[in-house]
């Protein structure tokens, strides 16, 4: 059965390009425009096997989203990859502290992304 990946990004371009690239590789993809919308989807039963989130977003940024996600039952160990333009080391450290699984700086090509996903998501 295809694994589900949630993409959280305020950029429509990012959402569509990631969705398309991941679907090409056989994943099922759910999208959200920011942290708040993503949490709502999770509360309404979406159960992704992996989450890819941007860091700088309106309403709720990626760091806060990861922090909140880790408090939700059933999402403590869900792999979360931060995909961002952000290059400040403090933000990277903070993401790690909140429980992010990895840090990817945009742009990342589809094959590289799939390689990383297969690394953190066994059986994908």
């Amino acid at each position: 059965m295809a694994k589900t990946i949630m993409v959280v990004d305020d950029s429509a371009t990012m959402r569509l390009s990631l969705k398309s690239a991941l679907e090409l590789s056989g994943f099922k993809v759910e999208c959200a425009g920011d942290g708040v919308l993503a949490l709502n989807q999770l509360k309404f039963g979406v159960k992704p096997d992996l989450i890819i989130t941007d860091i700088n977003m309106p309403n709720m940024g990626g760091l806060e989203f990861i922090k909140t996600l880790r408090t939700l039952p059933g999402f403590r160990f869900t792999p979360v990859l931060a995909l961002t333009t952000e290059s400040h080391q403090e933000k990277r450290d903070e993401a790690k502290k909140h429980g992010a699984t990895g840090w990817l700086v945009k742009p990342v090509t589809g094959p590289d992304l799939v390689k990383i996903i297969k690394q953190v998501l066994p059986g994908a």
């Binding site: 371009t13 690239a21 333009t85 742009p107 090509t109 589809g110 094959p111 799939v114």
Partner: peptide, 11 residues
């Protein structure tokens, strides 16, 4: 897949 990744330049 590569092009879709490179399109991230827009963001």
């Amino acid at each position: 897949s590569v092009v879709l990744g490179e399109i991230q330049f827009q963001d």
